[in-house]
């Protein structure tokens, strides 16, 4: 299940950890055996939210429902939820009624396979599908204020509920592709997601502490962005960081990766809207 070249990759990891490579290889072989034995995902330690790596100010800002700037996007999403759009003259509320009831727990189970055309959709994708199919309005651009606001509002209804992405026959191929991306070295830095967010989580990168890279707080308000932003914006920033070609926001590669990330984050509470540096 883990790419065959993973062990070989471990050998190319910087020389500072040379002494640990043998140990790493041994434990890696052990991990591979365990994986083969149960033919499922390896058991993981309890995931840690990115919030636990944040400084006191960021944690306080996220915890303050008034001060958390992401709540401005949630508030805008609430307004948009009730505004009729498109040729149908329907609003989100026309079908889904009160979001606090109808959307509760929904984001915690995304990305999901659409029952109709069998594509894998994240919340943004579902909102746009609703707009096109039911509201007869155009799809919103990824990262537009409207799509961010509606996504934040929908996901906010699952706040404090655990991420519970389920891997099943219908979505397994997407999950496998997402995992492949997670462990694939790429870019001029020749790094995979795993190198920072699994093997070096908790360690320092300049003035940052590397997090485990979970998506449970998205859309987040990022101080660096001075705005709310989507998980795909953050993922594209990672691609940029390792100097790799960036897939488009909303692309199949990123939605598959989002599913894999959701499976890694299982059990973590949804924090939307989170606050990060």
């Amino acid at each position: 299940m883990i790419p065959a070249n993973a062990a070989a990759n471990a050998l190319r990891w910087p020389s500072a950890v040379d002494c640990g490579v043998r140990k790493l290889l041994v434990s890696f072989c052990g991990l591979l055996l365990a994986v083969n034995a149960v033919a499922a995902e390896p058991p993981r330690p309890q995931p840690k939210s990115g919030l636990s790596y944040a400084g006191a100010d960021v944690r306080a800002l996220q915890a303050d429902d008034f001060g958390n700037p992401g709540m401005l996007w949630v508030a805008r999403g609430e307004k948009l939820w009730n505004i009729p759009t498109g040729r149908s003259g329907k609003s989100c509320a026309s079908c889904h009624r009160e979001a606090p009831a109808s959307m509760k727990g929904v984001a915690a189970r995304y990305p999901r396979i659409d029952a109709g055309d069998k594509t894998l959709l994240n919340i943004e994708g579902r909102i746009n599908q609703c707009r096109e199919r039911h509201q007869e309005a155009g799809a919103l651009a990824y990262e537009s204020e409207e799509l961010l606001a509606l996504t934040a509002y929908a996901a906010h209804q699952s706040r404090h509920l655990p991420v519970q992405a389920e891997i099943n026959e219908a979505n397994r191929a997407h999950f496998e592709r997402g995992r492949e991306t997670y462990y694939r070295r790429q870019g001029q830095m020749n790094l995979a997601c795993t190198h920072c967010h699994e093997r070096n989580a908790g360690r320092k990168l300049l003035a940052d502490t590397i997090s485990e890279g979970h998506g449970n707080a998205y859309p987040v308000y990022r101080l660096e962005w001075q705005s709310a932003g989507s998980l795909h914006r953050r993922l594209r920033a990672c691609y940029f960081g390792v100097r790799a070609e960036q897939p488009a926001a909303g692309s199949a590669e990123l939605v598959d990766l989002e599913l894999y990330l959701a499976s890694r984050a299982r059990g973590l509470p949804v924090e939307t809207p989170g606050v990060r540096r």
Binding site: L205, L206, A207, D208, E224, W225, R233, R236, A237, C238, F240, G241, R277
Partner: peptide, 9 residues
């Protein structure tokens, strides 16, 4: 004021 490691291009 500290510098961030993972700045977006």
């Amino acid at each position: 004021v500290t510098e961030l490691a993972c700045l977006e291009g």
